[in-house]
Design a protein around this nucleic acid. Structure first.
Lengths: 109, 109
DNA sequence: CTTAAATGTAACCTAAAAGGTTACATTTGT
DNA sequence: ACAAATGTAACCTTTTAGGTTACATTTAAG
């Protein structure tokens, strides 16, 4: 259940969401025994880039999400939401210095 | 109702989602008569940057979404989901050349 | 009406991030 | 033992988030 109105629901609780690159590897490539080279070719990206994605070193961009959605006939959201969940969790758990300085509007004046 | 499993649900149907910068301006700044200069200062970004955001020329990044969530005590998702909806709609309606070349896996072999 | 504050925006710049290329070492399957 | 698959280091290019300065225009308040 998605709770858009719950304020920053994943503060230090819960475990980090799984990176969508892991989903790609385990749920889509492995079951069909698609090699990284083949997958990279189908997505028209470099083998290096695909490797970085499945090793969670690079995010699944909107463009790559779009390509994955066409390749596997999934919704594009499957990938974009997975990436966003991952990014948001890490943002909330590793807030920047600047973020910590932001004061609530209603308290300031 | 969010439909993660509906395949690319916003093809040429529907109107484009409203840019979250418009939400910021109309739903958060205007009601409290917060000026752009003041808002920029609170978010610790430049006036130019804030202007670009409310004029829908620049996206609300994850970092800015985080700051907005602290400033207005909203969920971070209010901003990130708004931006993602906007970005996805435009991606689906203006697919890149490369995306058009991607072939479904099950059809290829 | 006049003036100050607020806003739009053009023309620049910087840093980071997405993505690629090449090369080489290691792993794995047969 | 050999070929295919993979990890990864070291480089590069392009895009984009974001800033700075300067100037013109708009708006609000005395």
């Amino acid at each position: 259940m998605i709770m858009k109105n719950k304020i920053n629901y994943s503060l230090p609780t819960n475990r980090p969401p799984v990176h969508p690159g892991e989903i790609l590897l385990e749920e889509f490539m492995a079951p069909f025994e698609i090699t990284q080279k083949d997958m990279a070719d189908r997505l028209k990206i470099s083998r290096k880039h695909l490797s970085d994605i499945v090793h969670q070193k690079k995010p699944i961009s909107l463009e790559i999400a779009h390509r994955l959605s066409k390749c596997f006939e999934t919704s594009i959201d499957l990938w974009t939401q997975g990436q966003l969940n991952y990014d948001v969790w890490h943002a909330l758990n590793n807030p920047s210095r600047e973020v910590k300085k932001i004061k609530p509007f209603r308290l300031s004046e």
